[in-house]
């Protein structure tokens, strides 16, 4: 069949067709604003961040730490058992040096998003950014520590941690 079709359907337009208005088009700018409730688990997690703590929950059936804190264990499908308070140190599991932003736009200065395994969580990672480090020197397995915003600037959000910086054991 595939080789019998002579003319495959589809009229490809060029950017210029839009820019120079060679074809008709219309635009719609949605005005969609959302207020997402953080809920039980995340609510406590963010309250913890406001206070400079990383909060998880533990399921005593599968013995996992759930991070960020969540109200139920999705493996055992039951309520979790307790809150756990974790250190603000961890290990880089994987990272990127990102030159593109949320709109696929080019960034002048790259950002370094990393998956950071939080100490005491048995290898559970959270998404965050690295700072105070030359991108060339970032390695998987690198030890990092949270750099917090000053307490009065915190708002109960993931951005209450500015970024994570490399650190050596035994230092602050």
């Amino acid at each position: 069949m595939s080789e019998k079709i002579k003319e495959w359907p589809g009229v490809a337009l060029k950017d210029a067709d839009i820019k120079e208005k060679k074809v008709l088009f219309t635009e719609w700018r949605p005005n969609l604003k959302y207020a997402w409730d953080t809920g039980v688990g995340y609510g406590r997690y963010f309250e913890g961040l406001r206070n400079g703590r990383i909060v998880g929950t533990r399921c005593n059936k599968c013995h996992r730490v759930l991070l960020p804190a969540r109200a139920f264990c999705e493996w055992c499908f039951r309520t979790v058992d307790e809150w756990v308070y974790l250190k603000d140190t961890g290990t880089v599991n994987t990272f990127s040096i990102a030159y593109t932003g949320t709109q696929a736009e080019r960034l002048k200065e790259p950002r370094i998003p990393a998956l950071i395994e939080i100490d005491g969580s048995n290898g559970v990672g959270i998404m965050h950014l690295l700072g105070e480090v030359d991108p060339k020197n970032v390695k998987n397995g690198m030890r990092v520590k949270a750099v917090w915003k000053p307490k009065e600037q915190r708002q109960g959000a993931i951005t209450d941690i500015k970024y994570w910086k490399p650190f050596e054991e035994g230092t602050r």
């Binding site: 960020p68 990272f95 990127s96 696929a104 990393a114 998956l115 959000a157 993931i158």
Partner: peptide, 16 residues
């Protein structure tokens, strides 16, 4: 809550 506020791009994930 935990990802978008960081300015996450989908590419980050693929890069990771």
């Amino acid at each position: 809550f935990t990802e978008s506020p960081l300015g996450a791009s989908l590419l980050w994930f693929f890069a990771w």
